[in-house]
Design a protein around this nucleic acid. Structure first.
Lengths: 250, 250
DNA sequence: CCAGGTTTAGACCATGCGGTCGAACCAAAC
DNA sequence: GTTTGGTTCGACCGCATGGTCTAAACCTGG
């Protein structure tokens, strides 16, 4: 933890330091980040920094903690999801969370990058602060899953930890994908995206018997008409290849 | 690319160098890896190394290329999947691929780690070798997706690139999860795992109308009996918490 | 106005990095 | 026997790193 002196610093200076650190750590990860660069960017002397923080790790964890706290504040509570009484309501509420989360990450991508840096630094796992942070995130996830299970929105046939891991992985992949192409994607496609993204989560997480009632465009009749309204490709990809595979003959 | 002299080295020495490099790069990523450590581990002098390779990046790309080639050889062809004529057959064949891939990664985790190191090194994206490697992997993925779409095993309503990204993300998360717990998991649960894992891929990738016929245990009737045979938790997770949430009242 | 603790500054340290370079080695050619 | 040229070696270079330390600047109570 930071020396108590740091907390007594004038707020703007504290912010300058934490912001510089957040950017550096988010960009390069813990190992790759340069303490010297942070010091330069923050406009503080080395002596002062080592007067505030024990070492690089101390600064890093303080930065993560601060960023997380700010993100959490922006995020608000999970009540809407926890209050759901049926599967549909649960996923609708999750959609809301999803939107909120997305806009937060969009506003401040360093939050996500910092989280990744935290998880990717094996040397830090011993630190108490680290454990506490991870436990907090894990607790949130468990709470959500438990609530979903209770209302039949989430399958019980998978280890919740595995399910969490998979959902996080999907989310990360989606984030990467979208961040990489947010400027090149058709705005219209972008608008319909949250529904489709959530649909992916539902597909992975819902109980098998509830899939047909929760998944977009799923019918009880196994073979629907080949051209469905919702079967429009998302982006420009189909412009290349669709001619050669007109319709499955089966 | 490596100086041609490297290829003329006696095979065992070449192997020693590439193995040392693969381990170091897999463990620390490109930036984190130490050329000096590799040199020490390989038992070669620095001068010799710089006689074989232009620089660190040259060694890295050569290592990746070599490892990938060896992995590809072990992996074999995609014919079984490309030859499928219906959705079920496609996914059955994918199951086979999945098993093969898993056993390869299990035997030699450095392959996966090297791939990650490659993707995580933004500075290398300009290199021609890098582009070629990525293009090769991307081509394989496109081929598979195209085949799946043709037989109705893969949805068309999502940009294939996005779908690939999500599936890769899921796979990565699963790998991480399993690698982390492979020793603590119940062997019985482990045995049934490939089916469940593939089921996750099917859920994400199949067309909506085919879900009920492809997903494990999906019924057309939305509300099945609460205790289904396949509704057994996968691992030890329930041993901790089940007492406080005995049964959903629904 | 000064004493004495608190805070700041930045030169300095050891270490490790990727990369260079001139010398040594050695087998084949003359 | 000497020269040549491909190969190997490791000391060395400049640089950046995380971290230390001393001396000056600053502030505040007496």
């Amino acid at each position: 933890m930071p020396r108590p002196r740091f907390d007594q610093l004038p707020a703007p200076k504290r912010r300058r330091i934490l912001d510089a650190a957040a950017e550096e750590f988010a960009q390069h990860g813990f190992d790759g980040a340069s303490y010297n660069r942070i010091i330069r960017a923050a406009g503080v002397s080395k002596g002062a920094m080592y007067y505030y923080f024990d070492d690089k790790q101390d600064l890093f964890l303080t930065t993560v903690e601060d960023t997380l706290a700010r993100g959490q504040e922006a995020f608000g509570s999970l009540d809407s999801v926890l209050a759901a009484t049926d599967a549909r309501g649960f996923w609708d509420a999750m959609q809301g969370l999803n939107r909120r989360a997305w806009s937060i990450f969009y506003d401040d991508p360093s939050l996500l990058a910092l989280g990744k840096a935290l998880l990717a630094s094996p040397g830090l796992t011993e630190s108490a602060t680290y454990r506490e942070l991870v436990a907090r995130l894990d607790g949130v996830m468990r709470e959500l899953v438990a609530a979903g299970v209770e209302v039949g929105a989430i399958r019980r046939d998978l280890d919740p930890a595995l399910l969490s891991a998979v959902l996080l992985g999907m989310g990360e992949a989606l984030d990467r994908f979208l961040i990489a192409r947010v400027d090149t994607l058709d705005p219209a496609a972008l608008a319909g995206l949250p529904e489709r993204v959530l649909d992916l989560f539902v597909r992975a997480a819902a109980p098998a018997h509830a899939l047909s009632s929760l998944v977009l465009g799923a019918r009880d009749e196994p073979r629907a008409a080949p051209s469905d309204v919702s079967d429009q490709p998302l982006a420009d990809a189909p412009a290349e290849a669709p001619a050669e595979a007109p319709a499955p003959e089966e």
